[in-house]
Design a protein around this nucleic acid. Structure first.
Lengths: 219, 219
DNA sequence: GTTTTGATGATACGCTCGTATCATCAAAAC
DNA sequence: GTTTTGATGATACGAGCGTATCATCAAAAC
Protein backbone atom coordinates (compact mmCIF):
# COMPACT_ATOMS: atom_id res chain seq x y z
CA UNK A 1 0.00 0.00 0.00
CA UNK A 2 1.12 3.57 -0.57
CA UNK A 3 0.94 6.32 1.99
CA UNK A 4 -2.30 6.18 3.89
CA UNK A 5 -4.10 9.46 3.85
CA UNK A 6 -6.79 10.70 6.21
CA UNK A 7 -9.88 10.36 4.07
CA UNK A 8 -12.20 12.13 6.46
CA UNK A 9 -9.92 15.12 6.57
CA UNK A 10 -9.60 15.25 2.81
CA UNK A 11 -13.33 14.98 2.38
CA UNK A 12 -13.83 17.81 4.79
CA UNK A 13 -11.34 20.04 3.00
CA UNK A 14 -13.01 19.41 -0.33
CA UNK A 15 -16.49 19.76 1.10
CA UNK A 16 -15.63 23.06 2.72
CA UNK A 17 -14.17 24.28 -0.54
CA UNK A 18 -17.59 23.71 -2.06
CA UNK A 19 -19.23 25.60 0.80
CA UNK A 20 -16.83 28.49 0.23
CA UNK A 21 -17.84 28.69 -3.41
CA UNK A 22 -21.53 28.33 -2.59
CA UNK A 23 -21.35 31.14 -0.05
CA UNK A 24 -19.87 33.60 -2.50
CA UNK A 25 -21.01 32.61 -5.98
CA UNK A 26 -23.85 30.20 -5.31
CA UNK A 27 -24.17 26.47 -5.62
CA UNK A 28 -24.60 26.56 -9.38
CA UNK A 29 -21.08 27.94 -9.64
CA UNK A 30 -19.76 25.01 -7.65
CA UNK A 31 -18.84 22.63 -10.44
CA UNK A 32 -16.54 19.72 -9.77
CA UNK A 33 -13.71 21.54 -11.48
CA UNK A 34 -14.28 24.75 -9.52
CA UNK A 35 -14.37 22.87 -6.27
CA UNK A 36 -11.14 21.12 -7.16
CA UNK A 37 -9.45 24.42 -7.93
CA UNK A 38 -10.76 26.02 -4.74
CA UNK A 39 -9.51 23.09 -2.67
CA UNK A 40 -6.19 23.10 -4.48
CA UNK A 41 -6.48 19.54 -5.72
CA UNK A 42 -7.06 17.91 -9.07
CA UNK A 43 -10.44 17.10 -10.48
CA UNK A 44 -9.62 13.44 -10.16
CA UNK A 45 -9.24 13.75 -6.41
CA UNK A 46 -12.63 15.29 -5.99
CA UNK A 47 -14.04 12.36 -7.91
CA UNK A 48 -11.98 9.98 -5.82
CA UNK A 49 -13.29 11.17 -2.47
CA UNK A 50 -16.82 11.86 -3.69
CA UNK A 51 -17.80 9.38 -6.36
CA UNK A 52 -20.58 11.58 -7.68
CA UNK A 53 -21.61 15.18 -7.41
CA UNK A 54 -24.67 14.41 -5.36
CA UNK A 55 -22.42 12.72 -2.82
CA UNK A 56 -20.31 15.87 -2.68
CA UNK A 57 -23.34 18.08 -2.24
CA UNK A 58 -24.74 15.95 0.56
CA UNK A 59 -21.40 15.65 2.28
CA UNK A 60 -20.85 19.38 2.22
CA UNK A 61 -24.38 19.90 3.54
CA UNK A 62 -23.48 17.83 6.57
CA UNK A 63 -20.45 20.04 7.21
CA UNK A 64 -22.64 23.10 6.87
CA UNK A 65 -25.00 21.72 9.48
CA UNK A 66 -22.11 21.21 11.87
CA UNK A 67 -20.90 24.76 11.37
CA UNK A 68 -24.38 26.12 11.92
CA UNK A 69 -24.90 24.12 15.11
CA UNK A 70 -21.55 25.25 16.43
CA UNK A 71 -22.43 28.88 15.83
CA UNK A 72 -25.78 28.55 17.54
CA UNK A 73 -24.19 26.98 20.59
CA UNK A 74 -21.47 29.60 20.72
CA UNK A 75 -24.04 32.38 20.49
CA UNK A 76 -26.05 30.91 23.32
CA UNK A 77 -22.97 30.59 25.51
CA UNK A 78 -21.97 34.16 24.76
CA UNK A 79 -25.17 35.34 26.44
CA UNK A 80 -24.05 33.90 29.75
CA UNK A 81 -23.96 30.63 31.60
CA UNK A 82 -26.02 28.89 32.69
CA UNK A 83 -28.36 29.63 29.80
CA UNK A 84 -31.80 30.95 30.58
CA UNK A 85 -34.91 30.33 28.48
CA UNK A 86 -34.56 33.88 27.28
CA UNK A 87 -30.90 33.57 26.30
CA UNK A 88 -31.60 30.26 24.56
CA UNK A 89 -34.32 31.74 22.38
CA UNK A 90 -32.53 35.01 21.81
CA UNK A 91 -29.16 33.36 21.15
CA UNK A 92 -30.57 30.82 18.75
CA UNK A 93 -32.44 33.30 16.62
CA UNK A 94 -29.72 35.93 16.50
CA UNK A 95 -27.21 33.23 15.59
CA UNK A 96 -29.03 32.39 12.38
CA UNK A 97 -29.55 36.00 11.35
CA UNK A 98 -26.93 37.22 8.85
CA UNK A 99 -25.41 40.03 10.86
CA UNK A 100 -21.70 39.41 10.40
CA UNK A 101 -19.43 37.80 7.83
CA UNK A 102 -19.67 34.30 9.27
CA UNK A 103 -23.44 34.21 9.70
CA UNK A 104 -23.86 35.78 6.29
CA UNK A 105 -21.73 33.05 4.80
CA UNK A 106 -23.70 30.35 6.59
CA UNK A 107 -27.14 31.66 5.74
CA UNK A 108 -26.13 32.40 2.18
CA UNK A 109 -24.99 28.83 1.73
CA UNK A 110 -28.07 27.52 3.43
CA UNK A 111 -30.24 29.53 1.06
CA UNK A 112 -28.40 28.01 -1.88
CA UNK A 113 -29.17 24.53 -0.60
CA UNK A 114 -32.77 25.51 -0.02
CA UNK A 115 -33.22 26.29 -3.69
CA UNK A 116 -31.45 23.09 -4.62
CA UNK A 117 -33.98 21.14 -2.57
CA UNK A 118 -36.80 23.00 -4.27
CA UNK A 119 -35.42 21.95 -7.66
CA UNK A 120 -34.70 18.34 -6.77
CA UNK A 121 -37.07 17.29 -4.03
CA UNK A 122 -35.65 13.79 -3.76
CA UNK A 123 -32.64 15.32 -2.03
CA UNK A 124 -34.78 16.31 0.93
CA UNK A 125 -35.54 12.69 1.69
CA UNK A 126 -31.90 11.83 2.29
CA UNK A 127 -30.86 14.81 4.31
CA UNK A 128 -32.56 17.96 5.12
CA UNK A 129 -35.87 19.00 6.47
CA UNK A 130 -35.33 17.64 9.92
CA UNK A 131 -33.13 20.52 11.02
CA UNK A 132 -35.68 23.36 10.96
CA UNK A 133 -38.18 21.08 12.65
CA UNK A 134 -35.79 20.31 15.46
CA UNK A 135 -35.01 23.99 15.85
CA UNK A 136 -38.69 24.76 16.14
CA UNK A 137 -39.27 22.17 18.83
CA UNK A 138 -36.19 23.45 20.63
CA UNK A 139 -37.57 26.97 20.65
CA UNK A 140 -41.06 25.87 21.65
CA UNK A 141 -39.70 23.94 24.61
CA UNK A 142 -37.78 26.88 25.99
CA UNK A 143 -40.67 29.22 25.33
CA UNK A 144 -42.83 26.97 27.45
CA UNK A 145 -40.21 27.10 30.17
CA UNK A 146 -40.26 30.88 29.98
CA UNK A 147 -44.02 30.79 30.35
CA UNK A 148 -43.71 28.76 33.53
CA UNK A 149 -41.34 31.28 35.03
CA UNK A 150 -43.64 34.12 34.07
CA UNK A 151 -41.30 35.74 31.56
CA UNK A 152 -43.66 35.04 28.69
CA UNK A 153 -47.44 35.34 28.66
CA UNK A 154 -48.74 31.87 29.55
CA UNK A 155 -51.81 32.47 27.39
CA UNK A 156 -49.75 32.12 24.22
CA UNK A 157 -49.48 28.93 22.24
CA UNK A 158 -45.81 28.07 22.47
CA UNK A 159 -45.45 25.94 19.30
CA UNK A 160 -47.23 28.54 17.20
CA UNK A 161 -45.15 31.37 18.60
CA UNK A 162 -41.96 29.34 18.11
CA UNK A 163 -42.86 28.65 14.49
CA UNK A 164 -43.60 32.32 14.03
CA UNK A 165 -40.31 33.42 15.50
CA UNK A 166 -38.32 31.06 13.33
CA UNK A 167 -40.22 32.09 10.22
CA UNK A 168 -39.74 35.74 11.15
CA UNK A 169 -36.00 35.22 11.53
CA UNK A 170 -35.73 33.33 8.27
CA UNK A 171 -37.72 35.97 6.46
CA UNK A 172 -35.54 38.72 7.90
CA UNK A 173 -32.47 36.79 6.86
CA UNK A 174 -33.76 36.53 3.31
CA UNK A 175 -34.30 40.26 3.18
CA UNK A 176 -30.73 40.84 4.32
CA UNK A 177 -29.28 38.47 1.76
CA UNK A 178 -31.47 40.03 -0.90
CA UNK A 179 -30.06 43.44 -0.07
CA UNK A 180 -33.31 44.93 1.15
CA UNK A 181 -31.79 45.93 4.50
CA UNK A 182 -28.58 45.37 6.43
CA UNK A 183 -27.99 42.98 9.26
CA UNK A 184 -28.32 45.59 11.99
CA UNK A 185 -31.74 46.66 10.78
CA UNK A 186 -32.88 43.06 10.73
CA UNK A 187 -31.51 42.49 14.20
CA UNK A 188 -33.39 45.53 15.45
CA UNK A 189 -36.65 44.17 14.07
CA UNK A 190 -36.03 40.75 15.59
CA UNK A 191 -35.15 42.13 19.02
CA UNK A 192 -38.20 44.38 18.90
CA UNK A 193 -40.46 41.37 18.56
CA UNK A 194 -38.51 39.31 21.07
CA UNK A 195 -38.68 42.09 23.63
CA UNK A 196 -42.42 42.33 23.13
CA UNK A 197 -42.66 38.61 23.77
CA UNK A 198 -40.44 38.54 26.84
CA UNK A 199 -42.36 41.22 28.70
CA UNK A 200 -40.46 43.19 31.32
CA UNK A 201 -38.35 40.86 33.34
CA UNK A 202 -37.05 43.67 35.54
CA UNK A 203 -39.61 46.36 35.97
CA UNK A 204 -43.16 46.76 34.78
CA UNK A 205 -43.88 49.96 32.94
CA UNK A 206 -47.39 51.28 32.57
CA UNK A 207 -47.96 50.86 28.86
CA UNK A 208 -46.94 47.29 28.38
CA UNK A 209 -47.71 45.41 25.26
CA UNK A 210 -49.04 42.46 27.16
CA UNK A 211 -52.79 43.12 27.06
CA UNK A 212 -53.09 42.49 23.34
CA UNK A 213 -51.26 39.23 23.76
CA UNK A 214 -54.41 37.59 25.01
CA UNK A 215 -55.70 37.80 21.50
CA UNK A 216 -59.09 36.27 22.02
CA UNK A 217 -60.43 38.90 24.41
CA UNK A 218 -61.97 41.94 22.81
CA UNK A 219 -60.89 45.22 24.41
CA UNK B 1 -43.46 43.22 -45.29
CA UNK B 2 -44.89 39.88 -44.29
CA UNK B 3 -47.71 39.31 -41.82
CA UNK B 4 -47.36 41.59 -38.85
CA UNK B 5 -47.51 39.73 -35.60
CA UNK B 6 -48.31 41.04 -32.14
CA UNK B 7 -44.90 41.13 -30.55
CA UNK B 8 -46.08 41.93 -27.07
CA UNK B 9 -48.44 38.99 -27.10
CA UNK B 10 -45.75 36.64 -28.36
CA UNK B 11 -43.32 37.87 -25.75
CA UNK B 12 -45.88 37.31 -23.04
CA UNK B 13 -46.59 33.77 -24.23
CA UNK B 14 -42.91 32.91 -24.23
CA UNK B 15 -42.27 34.64 -20.94
CA UNK B 16 -45.10 32.80 -19.27
CA UNK B 17 -43.80 29.54 -20.65
CA UNK B 18 -40.59 30.26 -18.76
CA UNK B 19 -42.54 31.01 -15.60
CA UNK B 20 -44.37 27.72 -15.98
CA UNK B 21 -41.10 25.84 -16.14
CA UNK B 22 -39.62 27.82 -13.25
CA UNK B 23 -42.64 27.10 -11.05
CA UNK B 24 -42.36 23.35 -11.53
CA UNK B 25 -38.75 22.51 -12.21
CA UNK B 26 -36.90 25.66 -11.19
CA UNK B 27 -35.23 28.40 -13.14
CA UNK B 28 -32.14 26.36 -13.84
CA UNK B 29 -34.29 23.97 -15.87
CA UNK B 30 -35.55 26.86 -17.97
CA UNK B 31 -33.09 26.75 -20.83
CA UNK B 32 -33.85 28.52 -24.07
CA UNK B 33 -34.68 25.22 -25.71
CA UNK B 34 -36.95 24.12 -22.89
CA UNK B 35 -38.78 27.42 -22.94
CA UNK B 36 -39.24 27.11 -26.68
CA UNK B 37 -40.67 23.63 -26.32
CA UNK B 38 -42.98 24.70 -23.49
CA UNK B 39 -44.24 27.64 -25.52
CA UNK B 40 -44.64 25.47 -28.60
CA UNK B 41 -42.31 27.55 -30.76
CA UNK B 42 -38.87 27.05 -32.22
CA UNK B 43 -35.67 27.99 -30.46
CA UNK B 44 -35.12 30.64 -33.08
CA UNK B 45 -38.33 32.41 -32.13
CA UNK B 46 -37.34 32.66 -28.51
CA UNK B 47 -34.10 34.24 -29.64
CA UNK B 48 -36.01 36.50 -31.97
CA UNK B 49 -38.29 37.96 -29.34
CA UNK B 50 -35.70 37.96 -26.56
CA UNK B 51 -32.28 38.63 -27.99
CA UNK B 52 -30.51 37.17 -24.99
CA UNK B 53 -31.39 34.97 -22.06
CA UNK B 54 -31.07 37.76 -19.54
CA UNK B 55 -33.66 39.69 -21.50
CA UNK B 56 -35.96 36.70 -21.30
CA UNK B 57 -35.44 36.32 -17.57
CA UNK B 58 -36.11 39.98 -16.90
CA UNK B 59 -39.15 40.05 -19.16
CA UNK B 60 -40.65 37.02 -17.47
CA UNK B 61 -39.95 38.57 -14.07
CA UNK B 62 -42.08 41.54 -15.06
CA UNK B 63 -44.95 39.22 -15.96
CA UNK B 64 -44.54 37.46 -12.63
CA UNK B 65 -44.83 40.78 -10.84
CA UNK B 66 -48.05 41.53 -12.67
CA UNK B 67 -49.53 38.17 -11.73
CA UNK B 68 -48.56 38.64 -8.10
CA UNK B 69 -50.05 42.11 -7.92
CA UNK B 70 -53.25 40.88 -9.49
CA UNK B 71 -53.55 38.12 -6.93
CA UNK B 72 -52.96 40.48 -4.02
CA UNK B 73 -55.63 42.85 -5.27
CA UNK B 74 -58.08 40.02 -5.85
CA UNK B 75 -57.48 38.69 -2.36
CA UNK B 76 -58.09 42.06 -0.82
CA UNK B 77 -61.32 42.49 -2.74
CA UNK B 78 -62.48 39.04 -1.69
CA UNK B 79 -62.44 40.23 1.91
CA UNK B 80 -65.12 42.79 1.19
CA UNK B 81 -65.47 46.25 -0.23
CA UNK B 82 -64.64 48.89 0.69
CA UNK B 83 -61.39 47.49 2.07
CA UNK B 84 -60.60 48.12 5.71
CA UNK B 85 -57.11 48.44 7.17
CA UNK B 86 -57.57 44.98 8.56
CA UNK B 87 -58.69 43.43 5.29
CA UNK B 88 -55.84 45.16 3.45
CA UNK B 89 -53.21 43.74 5.76
CA UNK B 90 -54.84 40.36 6.07
CA UNK B 91 -55.58 40.08 2.35
CA UNK B 92 -52.10 41.11 1.30
CA UNK B 93 -50.31 38.66 3.54
CA UNK B 94 -52.56 35.69 2.90
CA UNK B 95 -52.28 36.37 -0.83
CA UNK B 96 -48.53 35.79 -0.82
CA UNK B 97 -48.69 32.67 1.32
CA UNK B 98 -48.57 29.44 -0.72
CA UNK B 99 -51.90 27.95 0.29
CA UNK B 100 -53.32 26.90 -3.06
CA UNK B 101 -52.02 25.89 -6.46
CA UNK B 102 -51.81 29.41 -7.85
CA UNK B 103 -50.08 31.00 -4.87
CA UNK B 104 -47.77 28.04 -4.63
CA UNK B 105 -46.82 28.53 -8.27
CA UNK B 106 -46.23 32.23 -7.76
CA UNK B 107 -44.17 31.95 -4.61
CA UNK B 108 -42.22 29.03 -5.99
CA UNK B 109 -41.27 31.06 -9.03
CA UNK B 110 -40.49 34.06 -6.91
CA UNK B 111 -38.16 31.95 -4.79
CA UNK B 112 -36.37 30.79 -7.91
CA UNK B 113 -35.76 34.39 -8.93
CA UNK B 114 -34.62 35.21 -5.42
CA UNK B 115 -31.81 32.70 -5.69
CA UNK B 116 -30.96 33.97 -9.13
CA UNK B 117 -30.52 37.46 -7.71
CA UNK B 118 -28.33 36.05 -4.96
CA UNK B 119 -26.10 34.46 -7.57
CA UNK B 120 -25.93 37.41 -9.94
CA UNK B 121 -26.42 40.56 -7.91
CA UNK B 122 -26.21 42.86 -10.92
CA UNK B 123 -29.69 41.68 -11.87
CA UNK B 124 -31.16 43.33 -8.81
CA UNK B 125 -30.10 46.74 -10.05
CA UNK B 126 -32.22 46.48 -13.16
CA UNK B 127 -35.35 45.02 -11.68
CA UNK B 128 -36.15 43.67 -8.33
CA UNK B 129 -35.76 44.82 -4.80
CA UNK B 130 -38.25 47.61 -5.03
CA UNK B 131 -41.25 45.31 -4.76
CA UNK B 132 -40.80 44.02 -1.20
CA UNK B 133 -39.99 47.54 -0.08
CA UNK B 134 -43.19 48.88 -1.56
CA UNK B 135 -45.17 46.08 0.03
CA UNK B 136 -43.68 46.91 3.40
CA UNK B 137 -44.57 50.57 3.15
CA UNK B 138 -48.04 49.61 2.02
CA UNK B 139 -48.52 47.44 5.09
CA UNK B 140 -47.03 50.02 7.44
CA UNK B 141 -49.40 52.66 6.14
CA UNK B 142 -52.50 50.60 6.73
CA UNK B 143 -51.23 49.44 10.10
CA UNK B 144 -50.94 53.07 11.11
CA UNK B 145 -54.49 53.62 9.93
CA UNK B 146 -55.61 50.70 12.06
CA UNK B 147 -53.86 52.24 15.02
CA UNK B 148 -55.77 55.47 14.55
CA UNK B 149 -59.06 53.62 14.57
CA UNK B 150 -58.05 51.73 17.67
CA UNK B 151 -57.89 48.29 16.08
CA UNK B 152 -54.19 47.99 16.69
CA UNK B 153 -52.23 49.01 19.77
CA UNK B 154 -51.05 52.58 19.07
CA UNK B 155 -47.94 51.94 21.15
CA UNK B 156 -46.48 49.72 18.46
CA UNK B 157 -44.01 50.91 15.86
CA UNK B 158 -45.89 50.44 12.60
CA UNK B 159 -42.90 50.13 10.21
CA UNK B 160 -41.21 47.59 12.44
CA UNK B 161 -44.37 45.54 12.84
CA UNK B 162 -44.99 45.72 9.09
CA UNK B 163 -41.49 44.49 8.35
CA UNK B 164 -41.99 41.73 10.86
CA UNK B 165 -45.27 40.61 9.37
CA UNK B 166 -43.85 40.49 5.87
CA UNK B 167 -40.78 38.59 7.04
CA UNK B 168 -43.00 36.21 8.99
CA UNK B 169 -45.11 35.55 5.93
CA UNK B 170 -42.10 35.04 3.70
CA UNK B 171 -40.53 32.71 6.23
CA UNK B 172 -43.74 30.72 6.50
CA UNK B 173 -43.93 30.54 2.73
CA UNK B 174 -40.41 29.17 2.57
CA UNK B 175 -41.28 26.47 5.06
CA UNK B 176 -44.29 25.47 2.97
CA UNK B 177 -42.29 25.31 -0.24
CA UNK B 178 -39.59 23.38 1.56
CA UNK B 179 -42.13 20.81 2.65
CA UNK B 180 -41.83 21.49 6.36
CA UNK B 181 -45.56 22.11 6.72
CA UNK B 182 -48.58 22.53 4.48
CA UNK B 183 -50.29 25.72 3.47
CA UNK B 184 -53.11 25.41 6.00
CA UNK B 185 -50.70 25.09 8.90
CA UNK B 186 -48.82 28.15 7.72
CA UNK B 187 -52.06 30.08 7.35
CA UNK B 188 -53.04 29.14 10.89
CA UNK B 189 -49.75 30.48 12.22
CA UNK B 190 -50.11 33.70 10.24
CA UNK B 191 -53.70 34.32 11.34
CA UNK B 192 -52.74 33.59 14.94
CA UNK B 193 -50.24 36.42 14.87
CA UNK B 194 -52.53 38.73 12.92
CA UNK B 195 -55.35 38.16 15.37
CA UNK B 196 -53.04 38.95 18.25
CA UNK B 197 -52.17 42.19 16.50
CA UNK B 198 -55.71 43.20 15.61
CA UNK B 199 -57.08 42.90 19.11
CA UNK B 200 -60.86 42.57 19.00
CA UNK B 201 -63.14 42.52 16.04
CA UNK B 202 -64.41 45.87 15.03
CA UNK B 203 -68.08 46.74 15.23
CA UNK B 204 -68.49 50.06 13.41
CA UNK B 205 -68.16 48.66 9.87
CA UNK B 206 -70.78 46.07 10.65
CA UNK B 207 -69.95 42.52 11.51
CA UNK B 208 -67.83 41.60 8.58
CA UNK B 209 -66.18 38.44 9.69
CA UNK B 210 -63.97 37.23 6.91
CA UNK B 211 -65.71 34.89 4.48
CA UNK B 212 -63.07 32.28 3.71
CA UNK B 213 -60.42 32.89 6.28
CA UNK B 214 -62.37 32.52 9.46
CA UNK B 215 -62.04 29.52 11.69
CA UNK B 216 -58.37 28.92 11.29
CA UNK B 217 -57.39 30.60 14.54
CA UNK B 218 -56.37 28.03 17.08
CA UNK B 219 -54.95 29.15 20.41
C1' DG C 1 -45.03 41.87 -60.79
C1' DT C 2 -41.12 42.70 -58.86
C1' DT C 3 -38.84 44.15 -54.78
C1' DT C 4 -38.42 44.80 -50.05
C1' DT C 5 -38.56 43.19 -45.47
C1' DG C 6 -40.52 41.16 -41.20
C1' DA C 7 -40.91 36.57 -39.46
C1' DT C 8 -39.34 31.87 -39.12
C1' DG C 9 -36.68 27.39 -39.81
C1' DA C 10 -32.38 24.53 -39.74
C1' DT C 11 -28.08 23.99 -38.21
C1' DA C 12 -23.47 24.84 -36.35
C1' DC C 13 -19.86 26.70 -33.04
C1' DG C 14 -17.49 26.94 -28.86
C1' DC C 15 -17.87 26.10 -24.15
C1' DT C 16 -18.69 23.77 -19.72
C1' DC C 17 -20.58 20.17 -17.38
C1' DG C 18 -20.46 15.36 -14.87
C1' DT C 19 -18.44 11.23 -15.53
C1' DA C 20 -15.36 7.57 -17.19
C1' DT C 21 -10.90 5.55 -18.68
C1' DC C 22 -6.12 4.64 -18.74
C1' DA C 23 -1.76 5.22 -16.87
C1' DT C 24 1.54 6.14 -13.02
C1' DC C 25 3.76 6.24 -8.60
C1' DA C 26 5.07 5.14 -4.05
C1' DA C 27 4.52 2.75 0.23
C1' DA C 28 3.17 -1.43 2.49
C1' DA C 29 3.09 -6.65 2.36
C1' DC C 30 5.31 -10.83 1.61
C1' DG D 1 13.20 -7.35 -3.96
C1' DT D 2 9.36 -8.20 -5.94
C1' DT D 3 4.47 -7.76 -5.70
C1' DT D 4 0.39 -5.69 -4.32
C1' DT D 5 -2.52 -1.83 -3.81
C1' DG D 6 -4.07 2.79 -2.28
C1' DA D 7 -3.64 7.34 -4.13
C1' DT D 8 -3.16 10.52 -7.93
C1' DG D 9 -2.50 12.57 -12.69
C1' DA D 10 -3.89 13.33 -17.63
C1' DT D 11 -7.21 13.13 -20.81
C1' DA D 12 -11.43 11.90 -23.32
C1' DC D 13 -16.50 11.42 -24.11
C1' DG D 14 -21.10 12.65 -24.81
C1' DA D 15 -24.55 15.88 -23.62
C1' DG D 16 -26.56 20.37 -22.91
C1' DC D 17 -25.92 25.14 -22.84
C1' DG D 18 -26.28 30.20 -25.01
C1' DT D 19 -25.49 32.19 -29.11
C1' DA D 20 -24.63 33.01 -34.03
C1' DT D 21 -25.18 32.21 -39.04
C1' DC D 22 -27.38 31.23 -43.26
C1' DA D 23 -31.38 30.33 -45.78
C1' DT D 24 -36.39 30.67 -46.69
C1' DC D 25 -41.01 32.29 -47.08
C1' DA D 26 -44.83 35.27 -47.43
C1' DA D 27 -47.01 39.67 -47.14
C1' DA D 28 -46.61 44.53 -47.88
C1' DA D 29 -44.68 48.40 -50.78
C1' DC D 30 -43.90 50.30 -55.12
Amino acid sequence: MPKRVDHDLRRREIGEALLRIASTRGLQAASMREVAAEAGVSLRLVQYYFHTKQELLLGALAYLGEQLSARVEAHIRALGLPPTPRSLVYGTLTAILPTDAESRRLTRTYAAYYTLVLDEPQLAADHGTSYPDALERFLAGHLRAAQQTGQVDPGLDAPTVAAGLLALTNGLGSSVLGGQRDGDAALAILTYHLDRLFGGDHHVDGSRTEPDAAGTVAP
